[in-house]
Nucleic acid binder design. Structure first.
Ligand SMILES: [Mn+2]
Ligand SMILES: [Mn+2]
Ligand SMILES: [Mn+2]
Ligand SMILES: [Mn+2]
Lengths: 220, 220
DNA sequence: AAAAATTTTTAGATTTACCTAAAAATTTAA
DNA sequence: TTAAATTTTTAGGTAAATCTAAAAATTTTT
């Protein structure tokens, strides 16, 4: 059994490993909002417990056991987010912090029943896939909106930035999950993108476009 | 803001204070499953924080602030128990341990919305009253079943023992919350009680009868 | 009102998860 | 390929919540 802190480390290492091959001490420290020296201490402990492979100065990798533990936390986090949005009417920008706490509740039975109660959802309110009880989930095949060309169409199916400010901004623009879009223009000057929605046209900055994920209906 | 451990101490002190005027170090230690020496340490800390009044060797009392904090934990515990039973189909003997964890989740918004989602329940699955968001709840006026006389009638509205073994036993006998009962006999020899239910007659030991709470329809 | 039993507190350690400052290793730049 | 910059680790410490063993206070019994 892991402590809450150990669980948080495992989850963060897991998420970092999705982006970079080599998970570095400093990166973990930043995510954990702690100091590199503390990370080294914890990594040693996780290595002793067989949850990560660790070679001094060479970064860290999750073991099979460690990855399974991490995926379990991610599963819980995302199921709780669905609960908060679907059942308690939270907004998609309000759920993350509470889910950070709820993800540590230790009861297999609870999560199985919650999953069932929610109708075995496949994705959380941000479009992220929810692992099933065996830790399996479909590799999502999203394209960043920024990569689309003028004329391309698609559906918003995820975001790669979960800050409340960003999510509220999208909400205000009407760029929520499930919305069908078409790229009507890309400005050379600042890279901002003009998007055609069903009922209106909106303009988003390049920075925003980077963090919207699209399941493409096919390129133009 | 209190740590999980501090919250557990406050809750236990609150519950002990319901039974005895003077809450003793040893009693707290037993409930917390820890040693008296550790309790003394923690009591000092709680006293420093203004959550309890403490005089060496004279036991401990909750301050206004401490009691409010305790009641808030109790509220959360009981609301989560209702959620587990009403929404996730847990049995009344399965919810306590999970609620022990859930009660520490820190989000006022979460609890308000959960309360609403559950329909502002007044009692938890064991018949215990749920404080409202201002910490107010009706003082329950229950009588122990053991105190009833032959011919008395009433409704089962609570239990004063929450162990799984006890609750499962009641379940098997059909002695669940809301059931109407009539005392048909009390055995002199062992104090066991014969109870008339709507559809059947059951016999319970004196020990069991002590822990069933009745809202009396009036004595005979 | 002593003596005995019980309860509570103190003293001194331990463990977990941190920290700062300094040393060591690795990577990047000149 | 040295020198400089960056990253990572080690060394030594702190605070929270525990513990055991022993001392002190309180309560109960004789
Ligand atoms: Mn989240
Ligand atoms: Mn999410
Ligand atoms: Mn309970
Ligand atoms: Mn209860």
């Amino acid at each position: 059994m892991q402590s809450y802190t150990e669980e948080n480390y495992l989850k963060i290492i897991y998420h970092l490993a999705e982006k970079t091959t080599n998970v570095q001490t400093n990166a973990i420290a930043e995510q954990m909002q702690t100091k590199p020296a503390s990370v080294t201490d914890m990594i040693k402990k996780l290595a002793d417990k067989g949850l990560v492979d660790y070679v001094k100065y060479q970064g860290v990798t999750l073991t099979e056991t460690g990855r399974n533990a991490a995926i379990d936390i991610v599963r819980k986090h995302r199921l709780w987010e669905v609960f908060l949005v679907d059942k308690l009417n939270f907004k998609w920008d309000e759920v993350h912090d509470v889910a950070e706490e709820l993800e540590h509740i230790r009861s297999i039975e609870l999560i199985e029943r919650l999953d069932e109660f929610l109708g075995f959802p496949k994705a959380d309110p941000h479009g992220d896939p929810i692992p099933d009880k065996n830790g399996r989930f479909a590799k999502t095949q999203f394209i960043k909106l920024i990569e689309l060309k003028v004329g391309d169409t698609g559906t918003i199916t995820g975001v790669s930035q979960h800050s409340s400010a960003f999510l509220k901004h999208l909400e205000k623009l009407g760029l929520t999950l499930g919305k069908k879009i078409k790229i009507s223009d890309v400005t050379d000057f600042d890279g901002s993108v003009e998007i055609q929605l069903a009922d209106k046209q909106v303009n988003i900055s390049r920075e925003v476009a980077k963090h919207i994920l699209i399941s493409s209906n096919g390129k133009n």
